[in-house]
């Protein structure tokens, strides 16, 4: 069975939800403490939401120097699937795996509500079969206002790196961007929380597609056989 690592930083608060979502879709969640210097054998790595290091300095700025992150960057470089949600997305931009930064929301308020997103861009391990769909997912952030210089925006748009886009922009993000991928499309970050909407009893099921996609992407013959964790 596929093994999916979920990293816990000091201040992460969506890690248990994320592990639960992973197991609901038939994968084995593997809890990884941020102090680990090497990843255990896993087929994908997920960075959860929360407030790592109290959001001090800038959101995600200190977490990116947690010991485990060097190996997460190596794993991503070998093509391993990496997903950052909310604070996890902020960490991935701070460490340079994803373009842009997440600024304070336009209007300053913490936004905690459902939003609609369209799925697009090039195929990623997290969006198989979702292209063209509109998903309803919850957001919960004060710093989700995606920003980059004009050249980066043009490149991200041109290379199919815009994976999720808000239907109605909740935070001032440029081009209503809610989630982006790296140029190789194996690393994805988004502000909304798919792991919170995987069961109808808690509000919705539109997040399930992300985990179903990951399960399909890291089937038994995938990365591990290629020595992704060698």
């Amino acid at each position: 069975m596929s093994r999916v690592g979920v990293v816990t930083f000091p201040g992460s608060n969506c890690d248990a939800d994320l592990r639960h979502a992973v197991s609901l879709f038939g994968m084995t969640p593997v809890a990884i403490w941020h102090k680990e210097t090497a990843l255990p054998p896993v087929d994908a790595v997920l960075l959860p939401g929360g407030f790592s290091y109290g959001d001090y300095l800038r959101c995600g700025a200190i977490a990116r120097f947690s010991p485990v992150m060097a190996d997460v960057v190596r794993f991503a470089g070998r093509g391993g699937p990496v997903l950052g949600i909310c604070n996890g997305f902020q960490i991935l931009t701070e460490c340079g795996l994803l373009p842009g930064v997440l600024l304070r929301n336009e209007g300053l308020l913490f936004q905690c509500r459902d939003v609609e997103l369209t799925v697009g861009g090039a195929p990623t391990p997290f969006t198989r079969g979702l292209a063209g769909q509109t998903l309803r997912l919850p957001i919960a952030h004060a710093e989700g206002n995606w920003f980059a210089d004009e050249e980066t925006v043009a490149r991200v748009e041109g290379e199919g790196q815009v994976v999720f886009r808000y239907v109605a922009n909740p935070n001032g993000a440029l081009m209503s961007i809610a989630g982006v991928s790296n140029p190789a499309h194996n690393v994805v970050g988004l502000m909304p929380h798919p792991e919170r909407y995987v069961e109808g009893a808690v509000g919705g099921t539109d997040g399930g597609g992300v985990f179903r996609s990951l399960a399909a992407s890291i089937g038994p013959t995938q990365l591990r056989a290629e020595g992704a964790n060698a």
């Binding site: 300095l57 800038r58 931009t93 701070e94 930064v101 920003f147």
Partner: peptide, 8 residues
């Protein structure tokens, strides 16, 4: 490396 994010 840390004190500034030179993107912004």
């Amino acid at each position: 490396k840390l004190l500034a994010n030179t993107v912004i």
